Amino acid sequence: MAEPVRARRLTDAEGQRLQQIVRRGKGSTVRWRRALIIMASASGNTVPAIARLVAADEDTAREVVHAFNQKGLAALDPRWAGGRPRRITDDDIDYLVETATTRPEKLGRPFTHWRLRKLSAGLAENPVRVVRIGHERLRQLLREAGITFQRTRTWKESTDPDKDAKPDRIDAVLA
């Protein structure tokens, strides 16, 4: 039979901190329950009794005790990863960036430059590889990649054949 799970011997500072958390009962409920589990285990209670005391599963009580034995008081604040799983892989992001940097005409689209809605629709309707992505996430990914669809305007070159003569005419009128 396996040895019962018990919290290691508490230092004076740890015991005072745990008592402070349990007595005040303020703050996070998760932190309070974890502190109660550790105190109960350190005082010699069994895992089933602790689980009934805090209305938790026995496996949860064991996990908290093991975490405390390994990490100390850092076990009071679990580092849960939240949020939904990613729907877009890194390969999809690379493909998305590659598509965004390619002119739509080369991909058989009937327009000259991308917009967010056009790019999102084009990725979702692509027969080769379908990438479904919302406009906001697409905007964020493009911004991270340093891609903007705003056209850079420049006045360095003019297509006007009389461009050299115009400054002279303006100077003559002002003089």
Rank of each mutant, 00 (worst) to 15 (best):
residue 73 L to E: 02
residue 73 L to D: 01
residue 74 A to Y: 00
residue 75 A to K: 01
residue 75 A to F: 00
residue 76 L to M: 06
residue 76 L to N: 01
residue 77 D to Q: 03
residue 77 D to G: 00
residue 77 D to A: 12
residue 78 P to I: 00
residue 78 P to A: 07
residue 80 W to G: 02
residue 80 W to K: 03
residue 81 A to G: 08
residue 83 G to M: 13
residue 84 R to C: 07
residue 84 R to N: 07
residue 85 P to R: 12
residue 85 P to G: 11
residue 86 R to T: 09
residue 86 R to F: 02
residue 87 R to N: 15
residue 88 I to R: 15
residue 89 T to A: 14
residue 89 T to H: 13
residue 89 T to W: 07
residue 90 D to H: 08
residue 90 D to V: 09
residue 91 D to K: 10
residue 93 I to K: 11
residue 93 I to C: 07
residue 94 D to V: 03
residue 95 Y to C: 06
residue 95 Y to K: 04
residue 96 L to S: 09
residue 97 V to C: 04
residue 97 V to K: 13
residue 99 T to A: 15
residue 99 T to E: 06
residue 101 T to H: 12
residue 101 T to P: 03
residue 103 R to T: 00
residue 103 R to G: 11
residue 104 P to M: 05
residue 104 P to E: 10
residue 104 P to Q: 14
residue 104 P to W: 08
residue 105 E to N: 05
residue 106 K to Q: 14
residue 106 K to S: 07
residue 106 K to N: 13
residue 107 L to A: 03
residue 107 L to S: 03
residue 108 G to F: 07
residue 110 P to G: 04
residue 112 T to E: 09
residue 113 H to V: 00
residue 114 W to C: 04
residue 114 W to F: 05
residue 114 W to Y: 02
residue 115 R to P: 00
residue 116 L to S: 06
residue 117 R to P: 07
residue 117 R to G: 15
residue 118 K to I: 02
residue 118 K to R: 14
residue 119 L to N: 02
residue 119 L to F: 01
residue 120 S to H: 04
residue 120 S to V: 09
residue 121 A to E: 12
residue 121 A to H: 06
residue 121 A to R: 12
residue 122 G to C: 05
residue 122 G to I: 00
residue 123 L to H: 03
residue 124 A to E: 15
residue 124 A to S: 09
residue 125 E to R: 11
residue 125 E to D: 15
residue 125 E to Y: 04
residue 126 N to E: 08
residue 127 P to C: 15
residue 129 R to A: 15
residue 129 R to V: 09
residue 130 V to H: 15
residue 130 V to C: 11
residue 131 V to N: 03
residue 132 R to P: 02
residue 132 R to I: 03
residue 133 I to E: 02
residue 134 G to W: 10
residue 134 G to I: 08
residue 134 G to T: 11
residue 135 H to L: 12
